[in-house]
C-alpha cells in the first residue's frame, strides 16, 4: 500500500458516498445516469468475485463489500425508490455498445484465460468506459448539478491517483500490470474535458453548463 493508492481508494469511496447521499438527501436522481451506475455495479461484481476465493486483507475485503453494497444501493435508489425522478430520456447511451466490445476484448487480451481472470480483465476494461453514459447525459442536458460535479471529480481523481500508484509500485516493487495501466490511462483521459470545466467553472463558484 502507498499514499497514492490509499488516497485513490478514499477518493473513490468519497465519490460513491457523495452520490449515494445526493440521491438519498434530495430524494432525486435528476441528472444521474442510471446506466453508468449499472455498469459500475457490473464492474464491482465481476472484479470482486475473488471475495469468495481468496482473502487479501481486512481493508481489501471491507472496501470491496462497501463498493459492491453502495453500487447496488445506488442502482436500487435510481431504478426503484426514486424512479419517478429518473431522467430516462437523456440517459440514452446504448450499453451494448460498451459491454459487447469490452467483453470481446477481455477474451482476446488478458493475462490468463481463466474464468476469474477474464472477468477481472472485463471489469478493468469496462470501468475505463463506464462513465461515458454519464458524460453523454451531461452533454445532452447541457448542465450538471454542482454536487454531481463533485462526485465526478473524485471519481476521476481516484484513477488518476492510481496511475501514480502504478509508477510508485513499478519503481519500488517492480510491479506493473499493463492491462490495468492502459485502461487506467484511457479512463483518466476521458475525464480531462470534465476536469477542465470543473476547475475553470465549478471551483470558481459557477454552475457547470456546457456551451449551449
Amino acid at each position: 500500500m502507498n499514499i497514492f493508492r490509499l488516497t485513490g481508494d478514499l477518493s473513490h469511496l468519497a465519490a460513491i458516498i457523495i452520490l449515494l447521499l445526493k440521491i438519498w438527501k434530495t430524494r432525486s436522481c435528476a441528472g444521474i445516469s442510471g446506466k453508468s451506475q449499472i455498469l459500475f455495479a457490473l464492474v464491482f461484481t465481476t472484479r470482486y468475485l475473488d471475495l469468495l476465493t481468496s482473502f487479501i486483507s481486512f481493508y481489501n475485503t471491507i472496501m470491496k463489500l462497501i463498493y459492491i453494497g453502495c453500487a447496488y444501493a445506488t442502482v436500487y435508489l435510481i431504478y426503484m425508490k426514486f424512479k419517478a425522478t429518473y431522467d430516462g430520456n437523456h440517459d440514452s447511451f446504448r450499453l451494448e455498445f460498451l459491454v459487447v466490445p469490452v467483453g470481446g476484448l477481455a477474451c482476446l487480451v488478458n493475462h490468463d484465460f481463466s474464468f476469474l481472470e477474464i472477468l477481472w480483465t472485463f471489469s478493468i476494461y469496462l470501468e475505463s468506459v463506464a462513465i461515458l453514459p454519464q458524460l453523454f447525459m451531461i452533454s445532452k442536458t447541457g448542465e450538471a448539478e454542482t454536487i454531481t460535479t463533485h462526485y465526478l471529480f473524485f471519481l476521476g481523481l481516484y484513477r488518476a491517483l492510481y496511475l501514480f500508484n502504478w509508477i510508485w509500485r513499478f519503481y519500488f516493487e517492480g510491479f506493473f500490470d499493463m492491462i490495468a495501466i492502459v485502461a487506467g490511462v484511457v479512463q483518466t483521459i476521458l475525464y480531462c474535458d470534465f476536469f477542465y470545466l470543473y476547475v475553470t467553472k465549478v471551483l470558481k463558484g459557477k454552475k457547470l453548463s456546457l456551451p449551449a
Binding site: D9, R47, S54, I56, N60, Y67, F176, M178
Partner: peptide, 10 residues
C-alpha cells in the same frame, strides 16, 4: 512482468 499473487488492488 506482472507480479502474480492475486489482485491486491481494488
Amino acid at each position: 512482468g506482472q507480479v502474480t499473487g492475486g489482485k491486491d488492488e481494488l
